[in-house]
Computed example of a mutant assay.
Amino acid sequence: MSTLLDISNIDMVFPTPKGDFTALKNVDLQIKKGEFISLIGHSGCGKSTVLNVVAGLYQATSGGVLLNNKEVNAPGPERAVVFQNHSLLPWLTAYQNVELAVKQIFNKKMSPAEMKEWIEHNLTLVHMEHAMHKRPDEISGGMKQRVGIARALSMQPEILLMDEPFGALDALTRAHMQDSLMEIQDELNNTVIMITHDVDEAVLLSDRIVMMTNGPSATIGEILDVNLPRPRDRITLAQDDEYNRLRSSVLTFLYEKQRKVETISTKVTNKAEQPHKNSAKVDVA
């Protein structure tokens, strides 16, 4: 299968009052149509920066992003973003929030009747047909996030970008949202890039888990293939040896390999900063 999205050796450098800060260094990743990719790593490892570059909100300092062999240099409807905050307009109903996106993309391509059918279809897809005429303050946090996903899907994006979309939800609601997302991807075969801090979520949902090294100059440390059969059931997987092996691999990367990097870096820094009475040369082991 050919590459849909090519993240090609991107660096991201931000100017600061104390000099340039290199957030990303040589991030290289190719993603195929229909893949579910999770980005995971410690805070400050550049996950959101990668997502923002793909979304066209940032321009990489070097390297670039190609979608269907076309350069990504600005936001576009082919890349819809779902944030941790639902970002719904509070004075509009769920239906009207989705309608805004549909009118923006399909105003000259669909009749009013077709738009109405399409809006209702996407709200039904996320199990919100019963509350489509309620405002955000009349529905729960999980329901708001479902509307946000429906709004993104209604744009028919080639790639769905999700920045910790379930991070603010309680555990039970989060599990329901994960199940819904798996159902949607199974039906639509859409390509998803999701940021998460949840190891179990990454293994449950992903085809590949991209593990980021600690920043600054963060990059891809390891990529883990998740070859668990679909559809996936969390209860069954809890006893699955391969699931637990994958889970262990991610935990080992995050809490042993990256912790070790931090420890070594701290020792080097501390030793370099110690005064040496007999020599001006700092010998770092």
Results as ranks from 00 to 15, higher is better:
R230Y: 10
R232K: 09
E242H: 04
A238M: 02
N244D: 09
L246T: 08
E256Q: 11
L237A: 05
T236N: 10
D241P: 01
R230M: 09
Q239M: 09
Y255L: 14
E242P: 02
Q258A: 05
D240A: 00
L251N: 02
P231F: 08
K257M: 07
D241H: 01
N227K: 12
L228T: 12
R230I: 06
V250S: 02
T236W: 02
R234Q: 12
S248Y: 05
Q239S: 14
R230T: 08
R259Q: 12
Q258T: 01
L228G: 14
F253M: 14
S248I: 06
R234S: 09
F253Q: 14
I235E: 11
F253V: 12
L246G: 08
D241S: 03
Q258V: 02
F253I: 11
R247D: 09
T236C: 00
R259T: 14
K257Y: 01
L246A: 05
Q239I: 04
K257A: 07
L237W: 04
T236G: 01
R230F: 04
I235D: 13
P229N: 14
R247Q: 12
T236V: 11
F253C: 10
K257L: 08
N227S: 13
A238T: 03
P231D: 13
T236R: 05
R247Y: 06
P229V: 08
V250A: 03
L251F: 01
E242M: 03
R230Q: 13
Y255K: 12
R259K: 13
Y243K: 10
T236I: 02
D240Q: 07
L228C: 13
R247E: 09
E256M: 07
S249R: 05
R245L: 15
Y243F: 15
T236H: 04
D241I: 00
L246E: 05
P231R: 10
P229Q: 13
S248R: 08
P231N: 11
V250Q: 01
Y255W: 09
E242S: 05
L228E: 15
F253N: 10
P231C: 09
E242A: 03
L251Y: 02
T252W: 01
E256C: 02
L246K: 07
E256R: 05
L237V: 04
T252S: 08
L237G: 06
Y255S: 12
D241E: 07
R232C: 01
T236S: 05
L237C: 07
L246M: 05
F253L: 14
D241V: 00
N227H: 12
S248E: 11
L237E: 12
R234W: 02
T236L: 04
P229E: 15
R259S: 11
K257F: 02
R234V: 05
L237M: 07
T252R: 06
E256W: 00
P229M: 10
L254D: 10
Q239D: 15
Y255M: 10
R247N: 13
E242V: 01
A238Q: 09
L228P: 15
V250C: 01
V250H: 00
D241N: 02
E242Q: 09
Y255R: 11
D233T: 00
F253W: 06
R247F: 04
D240Y: 06
R234G: 03
R259E: 15
L246P: 12
P231V: 05
V226L: 07
R247T: 11
V250D: 04
Q258P: 00
T252H: 04
Y255H: 14
S248V: 03
